[in-house]
Amino acid sequence: MCSAAQSASRGEYLFNAAGCAACHTDVDNDGPPLAGGRALKTPLGTFYSPNITPDPVYGIGGWSDDDFVRALREGIAPDGSHYYPSFPYTSYTQMRHEDALAIKEYLFSRDPVARPNRSHDLPWYLSFRQLLWLWKQMYFEEGELKEVASRTTTWNRGAYLVLALGHCAECHSPRNYLGAIDSDMLFAGTRSGPGGGAVPNITPDVQTGIGGWPRGDVAYFLQTGAMPDGDYAGGEMAEVIDEGLSRLDRSDLEAMAEYLRSLPPITHRIERPEESSVDETREKDPWE
């Protein structure tokens, strides 16, 4: 049995791996850490992240363990309402129960901030959360990630970090008109990522993904933001690295790299047309 301090420390590590700080802090307006309010602009509207500090009124201070795990793994709030998939429970559902609790333990060790949540800015027809039940029936598969026996321990660790905790597919995949990830194009990048910008193809396709990156450079990028050509990450990815990935063990970053390099390569060029000499787009984002 580990102590609360040990659990919080483990929780901090998992919290960094899960990238919670990047979305739940309103960096643009110098908002307090984890107090929410960060705008996530999408083609469906603008979502504002909620306060996840342990404030009992505006944050999650009144949540039970079950409330927290249910939110992460089922996308259901303590009042029973459904979360929009802007909250990546679609990936977090694959998280282990004990890891979710360790993250909660860490969050509850942080300072509470009494900052009210901001309502999402969505068209009227998307404001009925009851409809999200139907969306979940179509696109959401609940359940912990299963280990693949035929793969190495490192690969399985990488899969867990990429799919469940890091929720990389949420930003690095194109979505359909209803905001669901195109499962045939997982990790193939999108020109309509969160915030409206392009998010690159991270499958090991040599021409349009990271297949041409030297071995070792993927883990190095996750740690530092440095790309093989000397360029550096910017935007949200720089925050994900600074606030999370750079704090992970090198072995975990290498595991993530091993998993990413094992994905089926998908040819999907993300650069804007004027920057690309050939059209190798296999499938277009519906939002383009």
């Binding site: 990522g193 915030g195 910008g197 392009a198 998010v199 690159p200 530092t224 933001g225 440095a226 790309m227 360029d231 550096y232 990450a233 910017g234 935007g235 949200e236 990815m237 720089a238 925050e239 690295i241 600074d242 993300i270 650069e271």
Partner: peptide, 16 residues
Amino acid sequence: GESCKGCHKDFREKKE
């Protein structure tokens, strides 16, 4: 490297 990343974070369209 940190300085490159710091500038790209706020002043360049994301592409990485």
